[in-house]
């Protein structure tokens, strides 16, 4: 019984962390219509940033600054934001394809650099991170429970922040730009600057998710920032319903449950010689989920309530 509960805590922690990343993507894609093909780069920048700033010194590696945890987490977010700012600045004025390609490229470049640079951990990744408050809480179940509580608080905080942001004039502006850029420009606003703001903000939120993820495992390696994570995060948003934060969180739990369950089922019941292909089968499934949703239910399972266009036009 305790095993099941402890697994549920583990599952809920990872799903909540991913939900934060999905919320960040929802700000970019769902609310502003910005295509981010490299979610992992921003997630990874936050994760690496947090561990490098907050970890203990390791031989031959940069970092180990042992900064207080919250500052390290914040630092990771700032690093994500800087990466997003550079990419956004170069691409947001151009056709939307460029953002898609450039962000995809950032993710490839990020993984490549992390894998090959020994001073950034190389293929082995970065260890030597003391989880915060470990002395007080120990290393066992109670720590995990406390960490879940912390993650949930952050998730709720981000959720409320985004809900308020979307209801604000700025949020209406985002949707105006998403739906009709020329109209938004005619309101005297600079769409490219507002898009850049939304893009950076979304990426910072992804960086926060990455930081929490790295904290949870006290470890990060290039294996954690593979392109598949980008697809998973998208699938979560598309299934949940782009534009709707509640849907985004529900989509995350749904897809993450389906992913872990299918992985477990395949490893449990599939014959030995198929085991090697478990990953391939799961990837095909997630591809089918993305394509299928776009073809048959593009609005997602929990669609955005459409109150949008009118208020954008009234403005």
């Amino acid at each position: 019984m305790i095993g099941v509960i402890s697994y549920l805590v583990f599952f809920a922690t990872v799903a909540s962390i991913l939900s934060i990343a999905v919320l960040g993507l929802n700000l970019q894609w769902g609310n502003t219509g910005l295509f981010n093909g490299g979610v992992v780069a921003f997630f990874g920048a936050g994760a690496y940033g947090t561990l490098i700033l907050g970890g203990t010194p390791q031989a031959g590696q940069m970092g180990g600054f042992e900064l207080p945890y919250l500052i390290a987490l914040l630092g990771g977010m700032v690093i994500s934001g800087i990466v997003a700012w550079v990419v956004g600045l170069l691409t947001l004025r151009l056709r939307h394809d460029y953002l898609a390609i450039a962000t995809f490229g950032v993710a490839v470049a990020f993984e490549t650099v992390m894998r090959n640079s020994d001073w950034l951990g190389g293929a082995q990744g970065i260890r030597g991170f003391e989880r915060p408050l470990r002395d007080a809480l120990g290393n066992g179940f109670s720590y995990n429970l406390a960490f879940l509580a912390f993650v949930l608080v952050v998730l709720i905080g981000i959720y409320l922040f985004l809900e308020r942001l979307i209801a604000s004039p700025f949020g209406r502006l985002l949707r105006a730009i998403r739906e009709d850029e020329t109209a938004a420009r005619s309101l005297g606003k600079s769409p490219s600057r507002i898009r850049l703001t939304a893009f950076v903000a979304g990426s910072v939120i992804m960086g926060l998710a990455g930081g929490l993820y790295a904290t949870f495992y006290a470890f990060i390696s290039p294996q954690d920032v593979l392109p598949i994570l980008t697809f998973q995060i998208w699938a979560m948003l598309i299934v949940g319903g782009a534009g709707n934060n509640k849907g985004a969180v529900m989509g995350t739990f749904l897809i993450w449950a389906a992913w872990t369950a299918s992985g477990w089922a395949l490893s449990r019941f599939a014959p030995m010689d198929v085991q090697l292909y478990t990953g391939s089968i799961q990837f095909v499934l997630i591809g089918l989920v993305i394509v299928g949703m776009l073809m048959w239910r593009p609005q997602g399972l929990f669609p955005e309530k459409l109150v949008v266009s009118q208020s954008a036009k009234d403005k």
């Binding site: 093909g37 939307h96 394809d97 292909y277 391939s280 993305i290 394509v291 776009l294």
Partner: peptide
């Protein structure tokens, strides 16, 4: 942009089916 998403999905399906 939905097409871009779809193309990622298609890529993943083709690649892994070939595998």
């Amino acid at each position: 942009l939905s097409m871009v998403f779809a193309s990622f999905g298609v890529a993943m399906i083709i690649r892994n089916i070939l595998g």
